[in-house]
Design a protein around this nucleic acid. Structure first.
Length: 454
RNA sequence: GGCUAGGUGGCAGAGUGGUGAUGCAACGGAUUGCAAAUCCGUACUACGUCGGUUCGAUUCCGGCCCUAGCCUCCA
């Protein structure tokens, strides 16, 4: 498997430190509001990577955190007049629900910051003991000059950053680039007792502490959005490396490209957010998932109604082929080599979709039962790696149709079939028009009639 | 201003130093009671721009233009 490592800015062979046990950590959300579709991209992309790693290696431990201590959560709670925990719980559950709808398998571990405050405190103590951090006015700060490699991941020169003059200068900082590991809480703010008084962790330390707690000092793969490369991941590297006596923190850094809406990145801070649940009102989760995988994960992805429509059309075509094969038992052959090779080439999902379309054509042309069984097995096995194509085809085409309505439609379709058998095409077309008016499209396939939502 | 990605046919989107993926849309044909679907085929003179290297560049190198991201919270 080859992966593009942001740290070396090159595609390299992936060699796990322990081939018997691969470890991966992905930055999860801060739960202060509903997740938007851009937040879904890393979840979906790294879900596919996790599936591939499980396919290729005997064991994977995949951790994706929930950041449930954050000043934005505090602000949301204050605004809503509820406890912090309630905000965190509400949006954590919403995140789980949204991802489930997108076919994302739960990671092996979902660490919460609130459960790791002790780990955070002890890591900060280690950093202070090693002279990489210092306490000042109730804060604890990481001393950036103490780590000469700082800036390596984001290819940034410290002096130039300071020249940018956008770093916050605070009187208690020894160096303008120093960042907060721990900060004091006022009485009305959530806080935890610590050697430096009652306070709460800064933004970056939680990932370092949780990765260590669940995956050890050196992890194989660390993923997240490209906007986290600096400062978040840079700071994680500094903290973890310095706390662990120089041990490598993450061996492969993977960053997904951002999602654009109207040519601009989608972000809560920009205000052009499209929530996952808004998208799910519009299309099935699988359509959204297909769109998220339709561009290479490192490329920017423009979200629009057009790409949703195209994804739906493509999935219709795939499910149509599977529907034709519904009476064929799929061969247990696994995904085709071409598919595996494409996925192992830095997760080239667009290439995989090209291969899927070849499979679909082969399915539509297949003459023998053996061929049909083989190609069905290939499509389903490919889909299992992508988290797609696993739905029941009839259910896919019925969409949101209720059982009662489906029964009624089935009856009308049967009537039309009888009319056609009687060569009463006027009656048959009348029924078809009637259904068309309800946005139901009839397809007279070789093996029988099929109907779908238009 | 610094750093990092990109700029591919009507749209989406891979990829490659020399036989121009794939899907959608378009067009023609087969099939069909008619449609839809499916299959076959065609086309769009596709690779931001100007130079360089090369027998040959969309693919390598350099300049320029443009876009997005990061440099501050952000997936």
């Amino acid at each position: 498997m080859r992966l593009y490592n942001s740290l070396t800015r090159s595609k390299t062979d992936f060699v796990p430190q322990d081939p018997e046990h691969v470890t991966m950590y992905v930055c999860g959300p801060t739960v202060y509001s509903f997740a938007h579709i851009g937040n879904a991209r890393p979840a979906v992309v790294f879900d596919v990577l996790a599936r591939l790693l499980r396919h290729d290696y005997p064991k994977l431990t995949y951790a994706r955190n929930i950041t449930d201590i954050d000043d934005k959560i505090n602000a949301a709670a204050a605004k809503a007049g509820v406890e912090i925990g309630e905000i965190a719980r509400t949006y954590t559950q919403a995140y789980y629900d949204d991802l489930e709808a997108l076919g994302v398998q739960p990671p092996d571990v979902t660490p919460h910051v609130t459960e790791h405050v002790d780990d955070i405190i002890s890591m900060i103590e280690q950093l202070i003991a090693a002279d990489h951090a210092y306490a000042a006015e109730g804060h604890v700060l990481f001393n950036v000059p103490s780590y000469p490699d700082y800036g390596k991941l984001s290819n940034r020169d410290r002096r130039e950053m300071i020249a940018g003059a956008r770093v916050e200068v605070a009187p208690y900082k020894q160096d303008p680039a120093d960042f907060v590991l721990w900060k004091p809480s006022s009485d009305d703010q959530p806080g935890w007792d610590s050697p430096w008084g009652r306070g709460r962790p800064g933004w970056h330390i939680e990932c370092s502490a949780m990765a260590k707690a669940h995956l050890g000092e050196t992890i194989d793969i660390h993923g997240g959005g490209s906007d986290l490369q600096f400062p978040h991941h840079e700071n994680e590297i500094a903290q973890s490396t310095c706390a662990h006596g120089g041990a490598t923190y993450a061996r492969y850094w993977l960053h997904n490209g951002l999602l654009n809406l109207d040519g601009q990145k989608m972000a809560k801070s920009v205000g052009n957010v499209l929530r996952i649940r808004d998208v799910l009102q519009q299309v099935p989760g699988e359509v959204a998932r297909y769109v998220l995988l339709s561009a290479h994960y490192r490329q920017p992805l423009d979200w629009s109604d057009e790409v949703l429509t195209q994804a739906r059309t493509t999935l219709d075509r795939i499910y149509r082929a599977l529907e034709q094969l519904k009476d064929v038992e799929a061969a247990q052959a696994g995904a085709p080599d071409a598919v595996l090779q494409s996925l192992r080439d830095d997760l080239n999902t667009p290439q995989v979709f090209a291969e899927v379309s070849e499979l679909v054509r082969a399915a539509n042309k297949a003459g023998s039962d053996a061929e049909r069984a083989a190609v069905k097995g290939s499509i389903l096995a490919t889909g299992a790696l992508l988290g797609l194509f696993q739905a029941d085809p009839a259910g896919w085409f019925a969409g949101e149709t209720g059982d009662d309505e489906a029964t009624e439609i089935d009856a009308l379709v049967a009537q039309r079939q009888q009319a056609r058998a009687d060569k009463d095409f006027a009656a048959a077309d009348r029924i078809r028009d009637e259904l068309a008016a309800r946005n139901i499209i009839i397809e007279d396939a070789a093996g029988g009639v099929r109907w779908r939502r238009g």
